Computed example of a mutant assay.
Amino acid sequence: MNPILVIEQLLNGAGYGLMLFLIAAGLTLVFGIMDVMNLAHGSLFMLGAYVAAQVHVHSGSFFGAVFVAIAATVLVALLLELTLMRRLYGRDHLAQVLATFGVILVADDLVKMAWGPSPVMAPTPAALSGPVDLFGVLPYPAYRLVVLGAGVAVALLLYLLVNHSRMGMLVRAGASDRWMAELMGVRVKKVFSGVFALGAGLAALAGALMGPIMAVQVGMGESILIPALVVIVIGGIGSVRGAFVASLLVGLVDTIGRAFLPLLLRATLPPSLAADLGPLFSEVAMYALMAAVLSFRPAGLFSARA
């Protein structure tokens, strides 16, 4: 097997895993700290991708488009939190799932009305469209390296925010004992609104960065939501560190499986059948990984609740 191809797929898997982390981190914060199951998190990812693609096409500034996408998505998330999510705090998870699933249906229809049913083209920034020569032998897309760097930087900043800042201390206090925190003067509602906005911003950032790599289309939020849920289950609900480790594992398993399983299956199966079964088996491998982890650690790798 070509070692250059292996290194390239490892980098692709790490990049996909870091984008999963941006989505899963916000989802695990909202679920683990606020105890709210927000299925509409994928719709925020989709909104960020659409807004970034539209602004980039009209302005020509990719980084400006990312900023606008994050700002617009956070504003929409705050409106959603004020009008709907606050009514769901303290309700059972079934009510939260049904309500936020309704938000998915509404969001998909609104996106169709605004941008149409066809996929939207999200161009790669011109300055990052070329390859970078890694190790002198591997030409790798510059944009994917930027995505890798952005994911690592956000993971580090998020770790510092949650574990080594006053905001993180207030978040953990509100999650541990909301009523005692309120008696001590913590404005838990504002803290929870901040957590919800932070999760939305991370989802929008992931959508804006993934736009030039994957198709920006209606329903993209639902397709990315399932791997994100697998990530938070593997990593442990409420754990940012667990989400980071699990995202890399899932990203690598999925990408390597899609790249190499068809090649292995061609040794015993017809090429067309191997090409069809390879992606299917790689998706099954993601769930097999989750089952293997939960069989040894039912609460996840780094469960915050444990």
Rank of each mutant, 00 (worst) to 15 (best):
Pro141Gly: 07
Val36Leu: 09
Arg91Cys: 07
Ser129Glu: 11
Leu134His: 13
Arg144Ala: 09
Arg86Lys: 15
Trp115Pro: 08
Gly48Trp: 01
Gly168Trp: 05
Leu157Ala: 11
Val66Thr: 11
Val74Met: 01
Phe31Leu: 10
Val103Ile: 15
Glu81Gly: 09
Phe135Ile: 13
Gly130Pro: 12
Gly26Cys: 02
Ala127Met: 03
Pro131Gln: 10
Leu79Ile: 10
Val111Met: 05
Val51Asn: 03
Val154Ile: 11
Met121Thr: 15
Ser165Leu: 09
Leu110Val: 15
Val152Leu: 04
Val146Trp: 02
Ala77Ser: 13
Asn38Val: 06
Tyr50Gln: 10
Arg144Lys: 12
His164Lys: 12
Asp133Leu: 08
Leu94Asn: 10
Gln54Pro: 06
Leu94Tyr: 04
Ala127Pro: 08
Ala52Tyr: 09
His164Gly: 12
Tyr143Lys: 14
Gly90Asp: 13
Leu78Arg: 09
Pro139Ser: 02
Val106Met: 09
Leu158Gly: 00
Ala71Gln: 09
Gln54Gly: 07
Ala95Lys: 06
Asp109Tyr: 06
Pro139Asp: 13
Leu110Gln: 07
Tyr143Gln: 15
Met46Ser: 13
Ala71Cys: 04
Leu157Pro: 14
Leu78Lys: 07
Arg144Ile: 12
Leu94Asp: 05
Phe62Leu: 02
Gly64Ser: 09
His41Gly: 02
Met113Asp: 14
Val171Ile: 15
Val120Thr: 14
Arg87Gln: 07
Lys112Asn: 11
Leu78Val: 11
Val36Gly: 03
Val97Met: 00
Leu161Asn: 09
Leu82Asp: 11
His56Ile: 07
Gly149His: 13
Thr73Arg: 01
Gly32Asp: 06
Ala107Leu: 03
Arg86Tyr: 08
Trp115His: 13
Asp92Thr: 14
Pro141Lys: 10
Ala142Ile: 07
Phe62Thr: 14
Ala95Val: 11
Gly130Met: 08
Gly42Glu: 12
Leu98Met: 05
Ser118Asn: 12
Ser118Val: 14
Asp92Asn: 15
Arg166Gly: 15
Gly90Val: 11
Ala24Leu: 00
Pro117Gln: 06
Ile23Cys: 01
Met34Gly: 07
Val106Gln: 05
Ala107His: 05
Val171Thr: 15
Leu148Tyr: 06
Val57Thr: 12
Leu80Ile: 09
Phe67Ser: 09
Gly90Pro: 05
Tyr140His: 11
Ala53Asn: 11
Met85Arg: 04
Leu39Phe: 12
His93Lys: 06
Gly151Asn: 05
Ala126Glu: 14
Gly64His: 06
Leu84Lys: 04
Val57Gly: 00
Leu39Tyr: 14
Val55Pro: 01
Ala52Arg: 04
Phe101Ala: 12
Ala71Pro: 10
Arg166Pro: 13
His56Gly: 12
Leu128Cys: 06
Arg91Asn: 11
Pro117Gly: 06
Leu88Met: 08
Leu80Pro: 13
Arg86Pro: 04
Gly102Leu: 04
Ser43Glu: 12
Val68Trp: 01
Leu138Trp: 10
Pro117Ile: 14
Thr28Phe: 00
Ala24Cys: 01
Thr73Phe: 00
Gly64Asp: 10
Thr83Arg: 05
Lys112Gln: 14
Val106Cys: 03
Thr100Leu: 05
Pro117Leu: 05
Ser118Phe: 00
Ala49Asn: 12
